[in-house]
Nucleic acid binder design. Structure first.
Length: 570
RNA sequence: GGCCCGUUGGUCAAGCGGUUAAGACGCGACCCUCUCAAGGUCGAAUCAUGGGUUCGAUUCCCGUACGGGUCACCA
């Protein structure tokens, strides 16, 4: 009894020695950062917690979607907290990039760090390096309770212990008898701190590896794991907390109800539960999301920052994937019944969908680029020509300046180009899924690009002779010569095609595809071949939308000029 | 290696003890067609494996294999 009182007193003495300037208490913080009572029952408070490493992972976007959905569905709060406790890895400008990228996808938070210089909310500061005082109050609390202690071990000593443990096949780590500083007397600790010896702070775990704990993951259900028995570091030598400790303090005092994080955190959840209990805090609900994988040879692995360009959200922005399409894709891998719902609610978007935690898949899914492309294609197909132009303008201004200059020269013309087979309701063109490809798809509409391509790659029309030996250079020449004479810009589409057929027939082409297919040897080629000659002469492309519309857009002079030019090169 | 999570066609997946095992992407064929893209019709293709439990297992339990994650003063 006497001893306990004495020990208790010494813990306070030690706490005071370590934190002489901390006079706030955990109870003070409880009052300063009260529970969010204004929220209605069942409101979910979530947070996205990026580290400012200059890189936003695609997985973070996926999680941002979960946060946004959960919070908005329950009239809760989704906030952003910057986790910058590892100052070595910090990259300037990260916060700006992160918030802008979230915004790009319409997944901006409601609270916390909303922009580089903008924080909103009563639970701040929302940047961990600015919350040092809070962690110190909490750490002091643990020292006072005898639940944290100074550790004087050097990295070299730690390394030796680890090697010994590995050699002897003992569970590695700092715990039990291997936790040297855990087992020194409180008097010695006090003495060594007084002497100015360097130390860090460790948690004193009372857990045992032999016991099991279980908790309910809101997406995966009950999970059973060994209790934590590691005396993890809570305050590092730079005075900042480790992730484990910051998570516990912040999510408690920011009143987070649901912690949505990647599966890689699952193994350390017992540590967090242990810490929550030690602090006397109620633990939040955990949701561990599956990792996004990528195919690597015959196996799959986690998206890697170094190897996979798709691991960075910025990749999708730079390539000009429409955010709507990316979001659609994320939803399909996020909630298993989304695609079903979507097919019944084509006109609605993902914000109208009721996201359910128990419908979350727990297996890591492969990033399926063809599927993403398809979804993006569908989204772009919904846009009008004007909208496509606006988007291409906005994208190219940022990522393809030359192209931007070219298309903004004559906006009326560009509007018609991008409205091609798009504004005429019935057959909507679906051949673009990202803005990056637009320049190549429409290159023949813009003289500068068209000319450059001819110089670089040459005239592809001669390739026709290789495909079909009846189509000789002579035939191509005759076809163009003939067609130049009869082309009439005033023709309606039907008249135009009749004229095409007429010309083709005179030269020996078959104008009826069925007849041609039945007896191809009777003709030098079909109307399709003749069309190809015209198409290539005008666009230098094998495949394009309807040539009539293209010719109309280009105008007679240019059409004739291009055909003559091609003629001179055969 | 210890611990944890996971495993239905090539990919994403529905299913929650009895189904001809949905659907989407991709792939193939055909149709439409001036070429593509699109659209239409059709098609090939899946319950990792061995034991239980049960009248009956894709579904429940255990083992095995395989894949992934994690074991820091990084998050």
């Amino acid at each position: 009894m006497e001893m306990d009182k004495d020990y208790e007193r010494k813990c306070y003495e030690l706490a005071y020695l370590i934190f002489p300037d901390v006079d706030e208490t955990v109870d003070d913080l409880e009052i300063k950062y009260p529970e969010r009572n204004t929220l209605k029952e069942g409101a979910i408070v979530t947070r996205i917690a990026p580290s400012p490493t200059g890189f936003m992972h695609t997985g973070s976007l996926y999680q941002a979607m979960v946060h946004k959905k959960l919070a908005s569905q329950t009239d809760g709060v989704y906030y952003l907290r910057v986790e910058d406790t590892d100052q070595k890895r910090e990259v300037a400008g990260s916060v700006k990039m992160f918030t802008e990228e979230l915004k790009h996808f319409g997944l901006e938070p409601d609270e916390g760090v909303l922009a580089e210089d903008k924080q909103v909310g009563f639970y701040g500061p929302y940047i961990q390096s600015k919350r040092k005082d809070i962690y110190r109050v909490c750490a002091k609390h643990l020292v006072e309770k005898g639940l944290a202690y100074p550790c004087f071990c050097t990295p070299e000593m730690m390394e030796k212990t680890r090697q010994m443990q590995e050699a002897n096949k003992i569970v590695p780590g700092y715990y039990g008898v291997y936790a040297k500083c855990r087992n020194i007397s409180i008097d010695e600790s006090i003495e060594r701190v007084k002497n100015g010896e360097k130390f860090i702070l460790r948690f004193r775990s009372n857990g045992s590896h032999m016991r099991k704990i279980s908790f309910v993951d809101a997406a995966r259900g009950k999970i059973e794991m060994a209790e934590n028995d590691q005396d993890v570091v809570i305050i590092k030598s730079d005075g900042l907390p480790t992730y484990h400790f910051a998570h516990v303090c912040d999510d408690h005092f920011m009143r987070t109800t649901h912690v949505v994080r990647g599966e890689e955190w699952l193994p350390s959840t017992p540590i967090h539960l242990d810490l929550f209990e030690a602090m006397g805090f109620k633990a939040p609900q955990y949701i561990h999301t599956p990792l996004i994988m990528i195919k690597d040879g015959n196996s799959k692995r986690k998206l890697s920052k170094r190897k996979d360009k798709e691991s960075a959200v910025s990749y999708f922005i730079k390539a000009g994937y429409p955010p709507e399409g990316v979001n659609e894709y994320l939803m399909t891998i996020l909630n298993s019944d989304y695609e079903m719902w979507k097919s019944k609610n084509k006109d609605k978007n993902y914000m109208d969908f009721e996201f359910k935690l128990n419908k979350m898949s727990s297996a890591g899914s492969l990033l399926d680029m063809p599927k993403l492309n398809d979804l993006c294609k569908e989204e772009i197909a919904k846009m009008s020509g004007d909208e496509v132009l606006d988007r291409v303008l906005a994208w190219s201004k940022e990522y393809s300046k030359d192209f931007y200059d070219i298309i903004s020269k004559d906006l009326d013309y560009s509007r018609k180009v991008f409205g091609l087979e798009r504004d005429n309701t019935q057959k909507i063109r679906k051949d673009i899924y990202k803005w990056e490809d637009v320049e190549d798809t429409f290159r023949y509409f813009f003289d500068d690009i068209y000319q450059k391509e001819l110089e670089d790659k040459g005239y592809i029309i001669t390739s026709l002779t290789e495909e079909k030996n009846t189509i000789t250079k002579d035939i191509i020449r005759k076809s163009l010569e003939e067609y130049i004479n009869v082309y009439n810009e005033e023709d309606t589409k039907d008249e135009w095609f009749a004229r095409m057929k007429d010309t083709a027939q005179k030269l020996g082409f078959c104008v009826n595809m069925k007849e041609y297919k039945a007896e191809p040897e009777k003709y030098i080629g079909s109307i399709a071949d003749f069309s190809s000659i015209v198409r290539m002469a005008v666009t230098n492309k094998k495949n394009t939308p309807d040539i009539y519309s293209i010719m109309q857009l280009l105008g007679k002079d240019k059409v004739i000029e291009r055909m003559k030019d091609t003629l001179s090169k055969i």
